[in-house]
Structures are given as C-alpha cells and as structure tokens.
Design a protein around this nucleic acid. Structure first.
Lengths: 142, 142
DNA sequence: ATCGATGCAAACCTTTTGCATGCAG
DNA sequence: CTGCATGCAAAAGGTTTGCATCGAT
C-alpha cells in the first residue's frame, strides 16, 4: 500500500475526515521527501496547487500529521518548527554544514548498538535518538 | 583562574563593559551548572538578587555570552531557546525522559571515533555534534 | 443534516528593537 | 565625559485560537 493510501486509512481509523486540504498538504510532503519544511514554506508550496488553503490549516494539519505519526518535528532551527516525513526504514541523521547550511542525511547502524551500553550504564531505556553532526561539507571545504 | 574571572577578562578583551547585570546573570549560571535555562526562567532567578534587571537585558546578555562562547544554545525545546554553560572538558550529551521530562547528562568517548568514519564515508569534516537519546529513566520505568 | 474542518482575523508568546536615560571606563 | 549598556514599551516573528461558515460523511 502506498503512503497516500496508508494516510487515508489512518485518518479514517481515527475518525478524521479526508479533506482536499489535508490531501494536498500531504502530497507536498510526498513529492519533496528530502525537504525539511516549516509551516510558511509548506504554505507557499500548497498554495501553488490549491490557492484557497489557509495558513491556520497548515498548522493544524502539521499537528494532526504528527499525532498520526506521518511526520515528525525536527530541531535544526531554533527559530521555527520544521518537519519531515516518517518513512518506514528511513531512520537517519543529519550532517549540517556550518558554511552553507545544507543538510545531508545519513543512515546509521553503529549507533543502534551504542544504545545498549547506555541502557546498562545509565539505567535508561532508550526509545529513540536524534543526532546531528555539524561541520563543513565537501563543497565548502575547497 | 575561575570562571567568573575568565568571563571578566573575556569581556575586557572584546571591549565590552562589565556591568552589574552581566555579572549577576552569569552568577546564576555558575550557581546552577546543571540547569538549562530559558530567558524567562533566568530572568526570574536574576530578579531575586537584583530586582532592577530588565528582560531585554537578559536576552541581550544571552546573545553576548553565546558570542563569547561562555554558554551555548540547546535544542530540547522547540517552543523557546534554552542555554547552558560551556565548561571546558564538559562536552556531554543528554538523556531525555519521555515520561517525566527529566534531562540527564552523560559523557561520551565512543562517539568521537565515530566522527572519523563519517568524515571518510561522507566527505564531511565534523566540527561538532549534538546528540539526544529519548527514553524512559530509571525512576519512571518502575 | 450533522459535526468536524476551514478561513480569517485576533490573540498569544517569545524574542528583538528604538529610544531616552544611566553608568562603566 | 563619552559611548556603550540598560529599561521600558512597542514591534516583530511564529504559532494558536475563537467564531462563523463550509463541506465530508
């Protein structure tokens, strides 16, 4: 089942209505899997395909999508909230260039093991982690 | 040299004045090394020892202290900016309990090595990293 | 037809800024 | 004395909310 249908089922199962606006907003996420939208940017994109969407609806949809685990909040940006799609098997972390601000994603395997040692050493049952490496990307290093 | 004097020198070296307010704000940080203040909380604390401090001064001091590398911004909280002291040799990461919200700090050694593999694999020169583990703390697990 | 979802505008909250005054150097 | 730092209040983002209307079921 593709993501759009999965989303539709999820709405249904939770007694939320499938509206034009919600579908359009999700489409923007699906068509830009590598982007990390904030509300304003998402609003700009959605207006291109449906001019009558309000900013408040974008905010309300972002909250709803988080609740349904379709997207999650990111913490790159201290001045606004950013979001990205939750795609199964897409657990990854970010390399953030201090020069150009470009964000590259990378998958990890090593760190999963590391969680176990934390669990033992600190009596802390790890559920999730969020890791950011700041540095200088290939392009900027020249 | 203790941190307070180090701070005074740093101000001086950069042609900033040592004011009563700046000193009082830094004192709050020094007396609460384990806390992660936002502006409002810091403001409340400072007012206890110096009632005439304005909130704008707190914000301006936070910016200045970041510039001087005395403190740094944290990203736990998407709804406000939080800060903690930069203490040499105190590079650490955070275990954040999803139940009670308590934040425990831990030091790492293993991860430093991991940076090297990223550097090779992704052509990305790592300068810094920020890592958060979310989970359930000892107290909440019972 | 019903009740949740929407658009708009107003409210809110955190942070920043302009300006007259204060005070460290 | 001089110019940076401060307090206050206003402004500026970003986000949330109240309310009348719209539209999915």
């Amino acid at each position: 089942m593709d993501l759009l249908n999965k989303f539709k089922n999820s709405l249904n199962a939770n007694n939320y209505k499938l509206t034009r606006q919600r579908e359009d907003i999700l489409k923007i996420f699906l068509e830009n899997k590598d982007r990390h939208f904030n509300a304003e940017e998402l609003f700009e994109e959605v207006k291109k395909i449906n001019y009558d969407v309000g900013l408040a609806t974008v905010y309300r949809s972002l909250e709803l999508f988080c609740e349904l685990d379709i997207i999650h909040q990111l913490d790159f940006d201290v001045s606004c909230k950013r979001y990205e799609l939750n795609i199964q098997g897409n657990h990854h972390h970010h390399l953030i260039c201090l020069e150009c601000g470009k964000i590259k994603e990378f998958n990890d395997r090593v760190l999963e093991e590391f969680e176990n040692s934390i669990q033992k050493e600190h009596n802390f049952k790890v559920v999730n982690h969020r890791i950011k490496f700041y540095g200088i990307c290939k392009k900027c290093e020249v």
